[in-house]
Design a protein around this nucleic acid. Structure first.
Lengths: 223, 223
DNA sequence: AATATTTTGTGAAATGTTACACAATAAAAT
DNA sequence: ATTTTATTGTGTAACATTTCACAAAATATT
């Protein structure tokens, strides 16, 4: 993963498990536990104890036989890797229902993330004095550079998504999570404009395919 | 995948690719194209031509050398597998911002899905006369059974999610896509209550981990 | 102190997924 | 009609990920 040759898919699964470990360990800690065994942690997030041990080996987290792992030590290492000493700032472009929901998403705070601003093209949405301000799209570039924002969410209608992506990349965004109902990807048209050493990583939230997949699996389960 | 021993992860990737093929092929068709080659389709959705051909072999879609695949034939087979002759009905439980956004999510219509009702605990949200009605949670069971709904979305606060999941499974929901900022899973406590042959498949939308992963990858890219 | 038990750590095996390679085939070119 | 070219189809290889298996170690028990 980290040190070995890895791909983004492997990374993502690993990061997902790390996030799950973190959440569960925080719960265990809140219950007063100080140590955890790999089989208990594995049960909690639906992976095998071997996977837990492999993950912890990857992070150089030492365990002790019959003593398991020290929860504080695991949390410390996970936070180090994910660099979650302080909340990571992100922006949301497109402040319709999904966008504003994401601006105020409760899960961000608990997971070391912070939506710091929204941007929209609709003047009625603009609210610079809100708790999390919403600015016009024209101010995106200035804001992104001034605040050194690297990651953003796109939650605009499908037909605007590609153009918004262009603006975000131009502004300096280097990671995009796309909620628009259209597949976005980093294509060659950006390379002529941007520093060649840094592209933009785009991940799409596949809401429809997730549901289609559920329908498919539910049908199969009924057979 | 379909005929071979498969797991849900493999299925999901396959279904995701099918959805992507479908979207792209609809676009190609709108452009007047009648045939497609595996390398063009692969380019369009970022997979290798071999993957495309393997997928089509799995679906028994015949191609012809130097003639490629007939777009209509591929779409027909994909729709058959995904059973998308008519929109698949789903419900949304929790009609806050994410919930109402999902009720009206534009991507559903184009992807063969239809949100037919929302449910909420808050009386102020109830709106039985809306285009997509929102009912009180007490009516969930009746509605689900009467309309034979099998799949639903959870978009409630974290602290309500588990209880809402219970109600949904009790009502007859067999596939759940969870947007609440908490990991849900189908645990043993359901087994005593439900028909043993049919569990409930739960997938979590990992919004925070997706973003954490983006931060991680962006950081790695800058190194 | 000695023994038993339970867990970690990790090399290797197994499984899953993707890509390679090329024979076969069909359309295009001659 | 024949040859050339470009693609499909698929067996197999390569690579990625997960699991197995067990030695080693540390705690618990005797």
């Amino acid at each position: 993963m980290l040190h070995n040759k890895m791909n983004q898919a492997g990374d993502k699964k690993f990061i997902l498990r790390l996030s799950k470990y973190k959440r569960v360990l925080q719960q265990f800690k809140a219950l007063g536990m100080e140590r955890v065994f790999s089989n208990n942690l594995g049960d909690a997030i639906d992976v095998t104890p071997t996977t837990v041990r492999k993950d912890f080996a990857e992070l150089n987290i030492p365990g002790s036989k019959r003593g398991g792992y020290v929860i504080d030590e695991v949390l410390k290492r996970v936070n180090e890797l994910l660099e979650q000493d302080k909340p990571k700032k992100l922006i949301v472009v497109g402040c319709g229902k999904i966008g504003t929901a994401l601006l105020m998403y409760k899960g961000f705070e608990q997971d070391g993330l912070m939506a710091v601003a929204g941007f929209d093209i609709d003047p009625k949405k603009i609210d610079p004095n809100a708790t999390i301000p919403i600015f016009p799209l024209e101010e995106l570039k200035t804001f992104v550079k001034k605040n050194n924002i690297k990651v953003g969410i796109i939650s605009v209608p499908a037909e605007s998504a590609s153009r918004v992506l262009d603006l975000m990349i131009e502004a300096g965004i280097r990671g995009v999570l796309n909620f628009a109902p259209v597949e976005l990807k980093y294509t060659k048209r950006f390379i002529a404009k941007n520093d060649h050493t840094a592209g933009c990583i785009i991940h799409n939230m596949h809401i429809s395919p997730e549901l289609i997949n559920l329908f498919f699996l539910v049908k199969k389960q009924e057979e």
